[in-house]
C-alpha cells in the first residue's frame, strides 16, 4: 500500500519560485519516467518528510492526472541542516520490475575486531531488482561470525524473497581488516617551505628577490 502525498503542479518554475515554495512549506519536486513528459510539482513538506524518514519507497501522487504511483529516486538535502531541498519521483508500474538502491545494515559486533582488526564496509548500498511491492526497507546482514581477514560478499547474502541483487557476486560488502600500524609521527613545529614548481634549485629564491 503506497503512501499518498498531496501534489500540486508548479506553474512557475526556476528563479526565486522554488525558494518561495519552500518558505511556504512546499518542497519542489519533479515527476518523470516511462516516456512521459516531466512534470514539475510541489509537495507538502510535512508529508514528504514523513515519507522520507519512514523509509517509504513508493508513493501515490494525489492531484496529478491518474494519481500515478511513483518511486522516490533522489532526495536533495541542504548542505547544512536537515532540510529537504528537492525530490525526484520516477513513474513506475506496480507489475514491472525496477532497480533501486537499498542501504545495507550490519548487525552485531564481528568477533574479528576484538583484536586488532577494524570493520571496513566498502559497499553501503546494494542495487536490487524487484517489483515495487517487494522493495526491502533495508538489507540486514549479521556479521557476528566475521573473523579477522574474512569478508562477506554479495554471493554470501541471501536476498529477500522476490529480490535479485544486481551487483556482481564477488562484490565485497564488508570485511575485517588489520590496519597497518604506523608509528605516531611527531608533529613538526617548524614550517618547511614547499618546493616551487618550475623553480631551478641552483638559483633558489632568485626569482623572489627584488633588485633595488
Amino acid at each position: 500500500m503506497a503512501v499518498a502525498i498531496t501534489t500540486n503542479i508548479r506553474e512557475k518554475v526556476g528563479g526565486r519560485n522554488p525558494r518561495r515554495d519552500r518558505r511556504d512549506g512546499r518542497i519542489p519536486a519533479i515527476v518523470y519516467g516511462r516516456g512521459e513528459e516531466p512534470v514539475p510539482v510541489c509537495v507538502p513538506l510535512k508529508e514528504i518528510e514523513k515519507a522520507v524518514h519512514s523509509n517509504t519507497r513508493v508513493v501515490e501522487l494525489r492531484g496529478l492526472p491518474g494519481n500515478p504511483q511513483v518511486a522516490i529516486r533522489e532526495v536533495q538535502w541542504a548542505p547544512v541542516g536537515e532540510d529537504i531541498v528537492h525530490v525526484d519521483f520516477v513513474r513506475i508500474a506496480l507489475d514491472e520490475v525496477i532497480i533501486v538502491s537499498v542501504s545495507v545494515d550490519l548487525v552485531g559486533t564481528p568477533k574479528g575486531i576484538s583484536g586488532e582488526g577494524i570493520l571496513d564496509q566498502p559497499t553501503k548500498e546494494l542495487e536490487v531488482s524487484c517489483l515495487p511491492a517487494d522493495i526491502p526497507e533495508i538489507i540486514t546482514i549479521n556479521i557476528v561470525e566475521l573473523g579477522e581477514g574474512e569478508e562477506i560478499r554479495v554471493k554470501d547474502v541471501a536476498p529477500p524473497e522476490g529480490v535479485i541483487f544486481t551487483a556482481g557476486p564477488d562484490t565485497i560488502i564488508c570485511r575485517v581488516i588489520i590496519p597497518v600500524i604506523k608509528g605516531e609521527e611527531e608533529t613538526a613545529e617548524t614550517f618547511d617551505m614547499p618546493e616551487r614548481i618550475g623553480e631551478d634549485k641552483t638559483e633558489e629564491g632568485a626569482g623572489e628577490t627584488k633588485e633595488g
Binding site: 609521527e185 608533529t187 614547499p194 616551487r196
Partner: peptide, 12 residues
C-alpha cells in the same frame, strides 16, 4: 606531522 603541499606553483 602537519600536512602541507609538497610542491606549489606560487608561494604566496
Amino acid at each position: 606531522m602537519a600536512t602541507q603541499p609538497k610542491r606549489v606553483k606560487w608561494r604566496k
